[in-house]
Design a protein around this nucleic acid. Structure first.
Length: 722
DNA sequence: AGCACGCCGACT
DNA sequence: GTCGGCGTGCTC
């Protein structure tokens, strides 16, 4: 103490400033030995590899790096790479109490690796605890999580929270069953309906890693076909992973796999199993007891050993998009896995997304499709009712149901159940051409035009006003915001066919299946029950509502939902008919009539490339209070080719409305800017945004999600961008 | 987010 | 000469 004072004062009086700084520096140095023993002095350290590199489980970006801890001798055996640990973290420099340095509270982390020494110059704190010796985080999963974090400008800790389920001691105690030997390779089954179906299975069975975009034929065959792809992969001695959008399709896959391979060869990872069961299944996969996995979104990270195939069903379903930070999409996570592990890849659905088309277009994946003859045999007859038909249809005005629709339903009800697809509430379109219903777009950046307060028209992306709009498709200068009362129509349908039972399936009550008996089954998109023997007919009532949405995906989404309903209808040769209330001149409607979702996706892709839309270019959204967004954009060192659109005000969330991820907190005024980069620059964009985010966190900006007024949210691949 | 550090003004 | 304000930066 007195020596400190002596050094500080004796030389400081009247000394020039540089010398003062020098003296302060030496004071600091003089103190170091007391506050920082160079090696940790508590219990004895592990003899070999006494340093543990730890990922501290805090999602904050500037903490997205490893910290070194000393390994006490008594934890040496358990402290292996991949285990969960607890460490003291935070609390500034820490205090010295009873000869030990103590930091702040205990927090969780993962032990990444053991090292002979640390490159950290300070003293190391000791691992406080090895939570359990179970090595949950293997090198492959770590590398995947790292890649996902980079791809989405997020933190490794956030991704690991999605990838590794919470620990459950009881599940860990139970030993997993012994692995079964590989099964026989399966027969091709209905894969023979596809042009290269048999070859695809052969490739998997012989240990190759084919990559395909599979346009599945309508009907119930898909789950058995996917199961055969899994079986072929298992037969090669490798593991397989199938991700499906919801619990119902997971249950179908579960049944198909059990039918083909029996019990015990696959794990089912879905959200509705309890935490213990879920962790037990996950552990069985991680330990190598089970080589095949079927599951919903979270299963995309399942640590399948020696992965030979990743498969995704219906990638256009938005439940494949993870709502938690950094909001990765199952398709992209599986793409990263395929790239990392060099495994097979299968992207399948009845319809086709633009992203799927891009994988084929770029040559990365091969198309796996059926010939026209097979399509004709499997698909129902599709008929449309457009404006012209309605105008000529006197009866429709009285009954509020087009004559054609009424006739088809009446006839079909003699043969079996009829599906009626009605739009979900909340599909409120913005602006579209009043004549041809093409979405109204900004002439500068092709963003969606929105009606502002007072009726002025402005771009939802770049904010530029539009005073002189005319439709580029048909030249009309009139706009409209369309509203459809299809729900009412569906109710009235029940009255139109009073002798027939009406069943409904929607958000609250989702029916899984309906019997083959005649019935009207009214359902919102995505909740359609499967009918035993197929529906005799389907009526699609949501044409305008879906197509007039300002979303980039409006056409693709509408087509996907129509096809999802129509695929449950019997083939045309068995009398199956679909009536769509939609303008037959519109592109998605034509694609439905011709049953050509792939052609539709390919044309959409070409258009997106031309307009600079994702997925051909990559976009990121930056949202938050206007000033924060502007400051942030000022600070980011964007790649040279990046283009910033906006910021523009986001709609204010009304108080009491359901909380949506990405939406501003109720009552707050937020802005959003979009940043767009050309193909190939996505990684650079993500890196730049992440760096800027980390910098602003460190600079005393308040934390991310925790209600900080200054924080901005960064989202790569924002959905609903207009 | 915490929390300790350090550099400034008011006080016994 | 010492106490305590808050602004700044680190957490192995």
């Amino acid at each position: 103490m007195s020596s400190e004072n002596g050094v500080g004062e004796g030389g400081a009086e009247g000394a020039p400033p540089e010398q003062l700084a020098l003296i302060r520096e030496s004071v600091r140095k003089a103190r170091e030995p007391r506050a920082k023993p160079r090696t940790w002095r508590g219990a004895a350290l592990a003899e070999r590899l006494p340093v543990a590199r730890v990922l501290v489980d805090k999602g904050v970006l500037h903490l997205d790096r490893y910290f070194d801890y000393a390994v006490p001798a008594d934890l040496d055996a358990d402290a292996q790479p991949g285990v969960r640990v607890r460490v003291r973290f935070g609390a500034g420099r820490g205090r010295v109490r009873e000869g030990r340095r103590e930091g702040g509270g205990l927090i969780d982390g993962f032990l990444i690796e053991r090292l002979p020494e640390s490159d950290y110059s300070g003293p190391l704190a000791a691992l406080a605890q090895v939570v359990s010796p179970e090595r949950v985080l293997g090198p492959e999963l770590l590398a995947l999580a790292r890649a996902v974090a980079d791809r989405y400008a997020g933190s490794l800790a956030d991704v690991l929270q999605l990838a590794v389920p919470p620990r459950n001691a009881r599940a860990e105690q139970r030993p997993s069953p012994a692995p079964l030997p590989p099964p026989q390779r399966p027969q091709p089954g209905s894969w023979s309906r596809y042009e290269h179906g048999g070859a695809f299975l052969d490739a998997l069975a012989t240990g190759a890693s084919p990559r395909a975009v599979w346009n599945a034929l309508p009907g119930p065959g898909w789950s058995d076909e996917l199961a055969r792809a899994v079986a072929a992969t298992l037969a090669s001695g490798r593991g397989a992973l199938v991700v499906v959008p919801d619990g119902r399709s997971a249950a179908r896959m579960d049944a198909a796999l059990t039918a083909l391979l029996g019990e015990g060869r696959h794990a089912l990872l879905t959200a509705d199993a309890g935490p213990e069961k879920r962790y037990r299944e996950w552990l069985a996969v991680r330990r190598g007891s089970v080589r095949a996995v079927v599951g919903t979104r979270a299963a995309m990270f399942a640590p399948v050993q020696d992965l030979g195939l990743v498969a995704l069903w219906d990638d256009g379903d938005d439940s494949h998009s993870e709502p938690h930070a950094p909001q990765p999409h199952a398709r992209d996570v599986l793409l990263l896995r395929a790239a990392q592990d060099g495994c097979g890849f299968l992207l399948g659905g009845w319809s086709c997304t633009v992203e799927a088309a891009q994988l084929v277009e770029s040559g990365w994946a091969r198309p796996l499709v059926a010939g026209r003859e097979q399509v004709r045999r499997a698909a129902p007859l599709v008929r449309t009712v457009g404006d012209l038909d309605l105008a000529r249809d006197e009866a429709a005005r009285a009954a509020r149901l087009p004559t054609l629709a009424w006739q088809v339903v009446r006839d079909a009800l003699r043969q079996g159940p009829v599906l009626v697809q009605v739009p979900r509430r909340g599909y409120v379109p913005r602006t579209a051409c009043a004549r041809c219903r093409a979405a109204a777009r900004c002439r500068h950046c092709s963003g969606p035009l929105e009606a502002r307060d007072g009726g002025a028209l402005a771009c939802g992306w770049c904010g530029r006003a539009e005073t002189d709009w005319s439709c580029p498709e048909c030249g009309s200068v009139r706009l409209r915001a369309q509203v459809v009362g299809a729900r009412r129509t569906a109710e009235e349908m029940g009255r139109a066919f009073p002798a027939v039972p009406v069943r409904t399936s929607g958000r609250e009550h989702v029916l899984d299946t309906v019997p083959a008996a005649p019935a009207l089954v009214v359902s919102t998109p995505g909740a359609e029950p499967v009918a035993e023997g197929g529906y005799a007919a389907a009526l699609l009532l949501d044409g305008w509502a879906m197509l007039a949405r300002p979303d980039l995906r409006a056409g693709e989404d509408a087509l996907r939902r129509w096809i999802a309903a129509a695929a449950l209808v019997r083939p045309q040769e068995a009398g199956g008919t679909v009536v769509a209330l939609a303008e037959p001149t519109l592109r998605p409607v034509q694609a439905l009539v011709r049953w050509d979702p792939v052609g539709h996706a390919v044309r959409e892709l070409a258009e997106r490339a031309e307009l600079g839309f994702p997925p051909v270019s990559r976009m990121a959204a930056v949202s938050g209070p206007r000033d924060a967004v502007i400051t942030f954009l000022d600070a980011v060192e964007l790649p040279a080719e990046a283009e910033v659109l906006g910021p523009v005000p986001l709609p204010v969330t009304p108080a009491g409305s359901p909380r949506r991820t990405g939406a501003p907190p109720p009552g707050e005024h937020w802005d959003r800017a979009l940043v767009r980069v050309p193909p190939g620059r996505g990684a650079a964009l993500a890196a730049a945004l992440k760096a800027a985010q980390a910098a602003r966190m460190a600079r005393g900006g308040s934390g991310g999600a925790a209600g900080g007024a200054e924080a901005v949210r960064v989202r790569i691949d924002p959905p609903d961008i207009g």
